[in-house]
Amino acid sequence: MSSIDVEGRSIALDKDGYLVRLDDWSPAVAAALAEREGLALQTAHWEILDLLRAFYAEFQLSPATRPLIKYVALKLGPEKGNSLHLNHLFQGTPAKLAAKLAGLPKPSNCL
């Protein structure tokens, strides 16, 4: 287990870098987690992170890649809901990395 410091608070992370307590999440935490991954969050990232949080609020689980693509296509259209766009934004592992930055649990049905 490790932790990151964000705005004076220590945020606990599990061995894979996911939040231990999901309600620790804030946009500042997301930005700090992204920085650890060498990623500067842009508008295109944020709209996916917002969607992921909506997915989790609705279904209480983290999507694997296919359902993530399907959900993004449903909400934002096929030009964003495709593996090329999502892989490009999230270093080739959108389900895992985007879930991590959005403060969701690690997707369980994902290799």
Binding site: E58, F59, Q60, L61, P63, R66, P67, K70
Partner: peptide
């Protein structure tokens, strides 16, 4: 317990 009802509603998203 985990919310099975919400999880079941995700099935169409999983194809």
């Amino acid at each position: 317990q985990k919310d099975l009802s919400a999880n079941l509603r995700a099935l169409p998203m999983f194809g």
